Computed example of a mutant assay.
Amino acid sequence: MIQSMTGFGKYVVQLPAKKVTVELKSLNSKSLDLNARMPQGYREKELELRKIIASALQRGKIDFSLYVEITGDETTSQINDAVVRHYMKQLRSIADGDDLRLMEMALKLPDTLKTDKEEVDPEEYNAILEALKHALDAIQAFRSEEGRILENDFATRLENLHLLLQQVSELDQERLQAIRDRLEKAVADIKMEVDANRFEQELIYYLEKLDITEEKVRLENHLNYFKETMASSESNGKKLGFISQEIGREINTIGSKANYAPMQQVVVQMKDELEKIKEQMLNVL
């Protein structure tokens, strides 16, 4: 089952005095690239939260955001009276102004608020973990849905490649006969007598070098293996990428050996289908 690396998940928990919001966004990446944003007071839990997210999402460029909004009377911030008064005194020495205006200016300056450091409440943290679980479920569902779209597209491309490979097989005998006719005509145009047996031996040797039977068999196997891997219970993006490289190698070899315009045209179509698979492959987990 294919999963995409693109996804979004969000969950909100309402506590008695706070509203906790967890958001997860994910894009494609070769490895796990996790960026966490959260209030300073919750940083002590960051490592544990990162491990939970990494274990669930495995790979991708992931943005994790934790928002905590105070909805009750509870607050850990207080005005630092001494600092504010000191700022006001300095401002009054510089320019005249009423106390209200000076206070507005002072409150915009550093250190006018002091925050008492508190431990994260266990019940609140459990609520955060629950919100994270629901957000992970949501992003996994998003990834699975995107994965189904990718899987359908891959299935279409694989079917097209099978049909094009069938065309290559049908053109193969015609191609070999065309090459034989071309070489015989070239020898005839020289208007020289040649040893028929020696010519036939050289012709067979030349045609054997252009034989694509092995490439056709290997390409068929790779296409089937891609389909089997895609249908497995896990999303194997890297493995599918390696199989795609092998598919491309066989297509390129067939193209280099074709020496026949109609077959080369089919090979170009095969390369086009494979390129579309590779573009989408970048987003597979």
Rank of each mutant, 00 (worst) to 15 (best):
Met1Phe: 03
Ile2Asn: 08
Ser4Thr: 09
Gly7Pro: 05
Gly9Arg: 05
Lys10Asp: 06
Val12Arg: 15
Ala17Gln: 14
Lys19Arg: 15
Thr21Glu: 15
Thr21Arg: 14
Lys25Ser: 15
Ser26Gln: 08
Asn35Gly: 02
Asn35Asp: 07
Gly41Trp: 03
Gly41Ile: 09
Tyr42Asn: 01
Arg43Asn: 05
Glu44Cys: 06
Glu48His: 08
Gln58Tyr: 02
Gly60Lys: 03
Gly60Glu: 02
Gly60Trp: 01
Lys61Pro: 03
Lys61Gly: 01
Asp63Tyr: 08
Tyr67Leu: 15
Thr71Val: 14
Glu74Lys: 15
Glu74Tyr: 13
Thr75Val: 13
Asp81His: 14
Val83Asp: 01
Ile94His: 12
Gly97Cys: 09
Arg101Gln: 13
Leu102Trp: 10
Met105Val: 14
Asp111Tyr: 05
Asp116Ala: 11
Glu118Ile: 15
Glu124Val: 11
Glu124Gly: 04
Tyr125Cys: 12
Tyr125Pro: 09
Glu130Asp: 15
Ala135Tyr: 10
Phe142Met: 15
Arg148Asp: 09
Asn152Glu: 13
Asn152His: 09
Asp153Val: 04
Ala155Cys: 05
Arg157Trp: 00
Glu159Gly: 11
Gln166Lys: 14
Arg175Gln: 07
Leu183Ile: 15
Leu183Asn: 05
Lys185Gly: 06
Val187Ala: 15
Lys191Gln: 14
Glu193Tyr: 01
Glu193Met: 09
Asp195Thr: 09
Asp195Lys: 13
Phe199Trp: 07
Leu203Arg: 02
Leu210Gly: 15
Asn221Thr: 09
His222Arg: 11
Tyr225Phe: 10
Met230Pro: 01
Ser232Pro: 08
Asn236Leu: 14
Leu240Lys: 12
Gly241Met: 06
Glu246Trp: 04
Ile247Val: 15
Asn252Met: 03
Ile254Thr: 10
Pro262Glu: 00
Met263Cys: 10
Val268Asn: 02
Met270Phe: 01
Lys271Ser: 01
Lys271Ile: 00
Glu273Ile: 00
Leu274Glu: 00
Leu274Trp: 03
Ile277Lys: 07
Asn283Ala: 09
Val284Gln: 04
Val284Gly: 02
